[in-house]
Every structure is written in structure tokens, then in C-alpha cells.
Simulated assay, not measured.
Amino acid sequence: MSSEHEIIVNEIIKLLRGGSTHIGLKDALDGLPAHARGDKSVKLPYSIWQLVEHIRISQWDMLQFCLDANHKSPKWPDEYWPKEAAPADDKAWEDALKQIDDDLEQFIRLFQEEDIYKEIPHGNGQSLLREALQIADHTSYHISEIIVIRRLQDNYR
């Protein structure tokens, strides 16, 4: 691997995990009270739970697209957004966060091992590099919303 390629891969992995100028999901959720997960009192369209689930579903979909030519994406937008404002219980919350972490690490392994510039054969011009940038951009956008909601709830640092 050339040093330029290694620099790009390492910087994008840092971006995916929430490094440098981006706060990661774990930091954005650190100290979040359980009762605030489904709070919609701030009159924004989504609760923190709905944003977390949307991140989970979207990232899972992008990962599966990269791995499986037969993958069927959820129906947009209905199946990308949970209807419930709050998780069913603590286990649902923890399971969602675990899947986000696990899927991200699986994507990162793929990103480290494969040609990041090669078009995904069953796609329309997508590559692992494009999917990595999309995951990072999408997740950071919604992390920002989580932070805004937490600030409006007065429970963020």
C-alpha cells in the first residue's frame, strides 16, 4: 500500500469513528439520561432514539450494499425511520448502539482490505470510498442533530 493510499485510508477511518473535527456518536450520547432518549418536547421532528435508529438502519444498509449483490434496501423513507419515539427498553437501546459499532467496524475492515476505488459490481458507480464518505457524512449530520436536541433538553455538557 502506498503511503498516500495509507494516509487516505487512515484519515477516512478517523472520520468514520468520529475523530479530529467530528464528535463521534459515543461522545454525543455520553451521559444521556434514559428518559431523554424519546423526548420530543423540544418540538423537533425526531427524538434522539429515532436518530440513533436511523443511523443504525442507514449504516447497516450501506454496509450490506457493499457486501451483498442481492441485498434489498429498506423502503425509503418509511423503513429508515422508526415510528416509536423511544426505545422499547434499555436492551433495545444497547442493541442498537452495539449494532452501529459492530457494523462500522465490519465496514472499516472491508475498507482496509479491499480496493477502495473499485466500483462495486452491482452498483451504479459506487465504490467503498464513496460509501465510506457517505456513512461519515450521514452519521455526522445526525450526530449534530443529537447534540442540538441534547442542548435544547439542557443535558449536554
Score class of each variant (00 low, 15 high):
146 I>V: 13
75 K>N: 12
7 I>Y: 14
157 R>D: 11
157 R>T: 14
88 A>D: 05
117 Y>Q: 14
26 K>Q: 13
75 K>M: 11
66 C>E: 00
103 D>A: 03
71 H>Q: 07
153 Q>E: 06
41 S>H: 11
153 Q>F: 10
65 F>V: 01
130 R>S: 15
56 R>L: 08
91 K>C: 08
152 L>C: 05
28 A>S: 05
156 Y>D: 03
55 I>P: 05
94 E>Q: 09
143 I>D: 00
155 N>T: 12
10 N>Q: 15
100 I>P: 01
134 Q>G: 09
9 V>I: 15
63 L>T: 09
119 E>M: 10
157 R>S: 13
56 R>Y: 11
64 Q>A: 10
2 S>D: 15
1 M>K: 12
46 Y>W: 15
28 A>M: 04
90 D>L: 03
6 E>L: 14
155 N>Y: 02
100 I>Y: 02
107 F>Y: 07
81 W>R: 12
119 E>I: 03
102 D>S: 12
109 R>L: 11
96 A>G: 04
25 L>Q: 03
61 D>N: 15
105 E>S: 06
13 I>V: 15
140 S>I: 06
77 P>I: 11
155 N>C: 15
44 L>P: 08
129 L>G: 08
127 S>C: 00
97 L>E: 02
16 L>C: 09
95 D>T: 08
118 K>Y: 06
108 I>V: 09
32 L>Q: 06
38 G>T: 11
115 D>G: 00
33 P>L: 11
102 D>R: 13
136 A>P: 04
86 A>N: 08
119 E>L: 08
76 W>F: 15
62 M>N: 13
77 P>H: 06
20 S>M: 08
63 L>Q: 05
77 P>D: 14
156 Y>A: 04
156 Y>P: 05
90 D>G: 09
68 D>L: 04
22 H>R: 10
95 D>H: 03
3 S>T: 12
34 A>E: 11
71 H>W: 12
34 A>M: 08
26 K>H: 08
116 I>N: 01
97 L>W: 00
155 N>G: 04
109 R>C: 07
118 K>M: 08
15 L>S: 13
49 W>S: 08
141 Y>W: 10
61 D>I: 02
34 A>F: 13
109 R>K: 13
46 Y>Q: 03
135 I>V: 07
13 I>L: 02
92 A>F: 06
108 I>Y: 00
148 V>L: 12
116 I>G: 06
7 I>V: 10
7 I>T: 12
30 D>T: 14
72 K>D: 05
156 Y>F: 14
129 L>Q: 05
14 K>V: 10
138 H>G: 02
81 W>S: 00
144 S>L: 11
98 K>P: 03
102 D>G: 03
87 P>W: 04
90 D>P: 00
155 N>M: 03
85 A>V: 02
85 A>S: 13
135 I>T: 00
136 A>W: 01
101 D>H: 12
76 W>Y: 14
124 N>T: 09
134 Q>A: 12
51 L>I: 15
95 D>N: 15
104 L>V: 00
128 L>G: 02
83 K>G: 03
142 H>N: 06
36 A>M: 15
84 E>D: 10
12 I>S: 07
154 D>L: 09
134 Q>C: 06
112 Q>N: 12
89 D>L: 05
90 D>E: 13
